[in-house]
């Protein structure tokens, strides 16, 4: 994400990082045999989606809320 050649690649790297973090959270939950980690995973998924869409809109329009 730091040495990406363009803005779109940075956003894409952020999206990939969020998805990998979700997978890590779920694996951690399986490792510790608890269902407590599913709510953070769900929140990560939602916030990651909203953030990526907001960044793409910002690139497109130069503004998020019009």
């Amino acid at each position: 994400m730091v040495r990406a050649p363009g803005v779109g690649d940075r956003v894409l790297a952020l999206d990939t990082m969020v998805i990998n973090a979700i997978a890590l959270l779920i694996l951690y939950g399986v490792l510790h045999d608890t269902t407590m980690y599913f709510e953070p995973a769900m929140l990560f998924a939602m916030v990651g989606f909203v953030g990526t869409v907001a960044y793409a809109r910002f690139m497109l329009r130069g503004d998020i809320i019009e």
């Binding site: 956003v11 998805i19 979700i22 995973a41 769900m42 989606f49 497109l60």
Partner: peptide, 25 residues
């Protein structure tokens, strides 16, 4: 438990949308 199904559904719904937005930008 249904949590995984929820997360799977959410991710599979939102991944094409984000890809489309990034491609469009």
């Amino acid at each position: 438990s249904f949590h995984e199904l929820l997360i799977t559904l959410f991710l599979f719904l939102t991944a094409p949308v984000t890809a489309f937005f990034i491609a469009k930008a």
